[in-house]
Computed example of a mutant assay.
Amino acid sequence: MASSINTNIAAMTALQSLNQTNKEMLVTQNRVSTGYRVADASDNAAYWSIATTMRGDRSSLSTVLDALGLGSATAEIAAKGIESAIEVAGKLKDKLLAARTPGVDRTKIQSEIKELQDSLKSIVNGATFNGQNWLTGDSGANTTTRTLVSSFSRAADGSIEIGTITVDLDDLRLIDTAGSSGSVSGILNTSVTSSSSASSAYTVLTLDISAFTDDTDDLAAIVHMMETVDTAIDKMTDAATSLGAVKTRIDIQRDFAKSLIDAIDTGVGQLVDADMNEESTRLQALQVRQQLGVQALGIANQSAQQILRLFQ
């Protein structure tokens, strides 16, 4: 090969090789520093697009998980409220049973019943979480249900679907704040007519035996009051069962959402994460190539100096 002082082919070749090595080192160093094999669209447009969409879906699932957490907490508070109300109602029935005994001081028993009734009201009003109370409300309102976001999914065509869990508050309402006592549907303040006397009707929250005597009719009325409380306990037990089913479904959806989030994280990682073992090995090899390239370029530049000897 002819020697030229204008064109040093060996140096040009060595320089091109060194520049290519430097570019590859830059890519590898970026992967090592960020942990991503595909950090932006220029690295791999298809993978980056898929990963970006999946990250957006993961964020939505995380929001769904938060919503399910709120729903689960609200259902838990309502369930505890019903359980406490059932316990207090049981004590109220015991007081009525004691009042059925001839000769007892029903005025004092009524004072205890009044305290239990106030406790029931406090329990129902206190079963509130995040401003939501499923145990009391107006049955005449337009909305007597609660819809909880339960899932988020993306179809093959890119459209999204939102799943929901519907809670019917009419099945859970213990105290209805609507209308008069004859039109309400709350378990504790709905009038229950006596099976033996259609003219007698009571509600759990308005029972009053303070004026009762040992008269046969009064004793029969006390028995009916006990039936009223017992009916309310049965209905509250059904409500607790319904609420328990809702909470179980919420918990299942929460577990499923967590599994989906983990699966998305794994899928995105397989698409865009860098293999650090591979990248560290590649970086060491490129560093050796870079050192050799620098040496090769130095040798190629020195070869041009040999031409000066021809003129000595």
Rank of each mutant, 00 (worst) to 15 (best):
A14M: 04
L172Q: 03
I160T: 06
T145G: 02
M236S: 05
S111K: 11
L188W: 01
E115M: 11
R289H: 08
A14F: 14
T145I: 12
T13M: 00
T53R: 13
L310V: 07
G71Y: 00
S195R: 02
L207E: 12
V104H: 07
G81H: 03
R154L: 03
A98F: 14
S139K: 08
M226W: 05
Q16R: 06
T213P: 08
D251A: 13
N277L: 13
D43L: 06
Y202R: 09
E227W: 01
A232E: 11
A85W: 02
A67G: 01
T206W: 10
G293D: 03
F256N: 04
R154F: 01
G56M: 10
I222T: 11
A85Q: 02
T241G: 13
R31W: 02
T241L: 14
K121Q: 14
S194G: 15
S49P: 06
S185E: 06
T213Q: 11
V229E: 08
I77D: 04
A178I: 13
K247R: 15
A2G: 01
A11Y: 03
Y36T: 03
R106H: 11
F152V: 00
D208Y: 05
V268T: 08
S303G: 12
N6I: 15
D217N: 11
Q117H: 10
G35Q: 06
L283F: 00
I307G: 13
R55M: 10
N44I: 12
Q287N: 08
A155Y: 13
S151A: 07
T128D: 03
L169G: 06
T128E: 15
A232C: 06
D238A: 13
L96Y: 01
D262I: 00
G293V: 14
A75I: 11
Q287C: 09
I123D: 12
I113T: 10
A178F: 15
T34C: 00
T53Q: 06
T228R: 08
D57Q: 07
T190S: 14
E161R: 02
S180R: 07
T34V: 10
Q20S: 15
K80Q: 12
G179P: 04
A245W: 00
R37P: 02
D105V: 07
L174R: 14
A211I: 12
Q291C: 08
K95F: 05
A220E: 08
M1R: 05
S4M: 12
M25A: 12
D138E: 09
G179C: 10
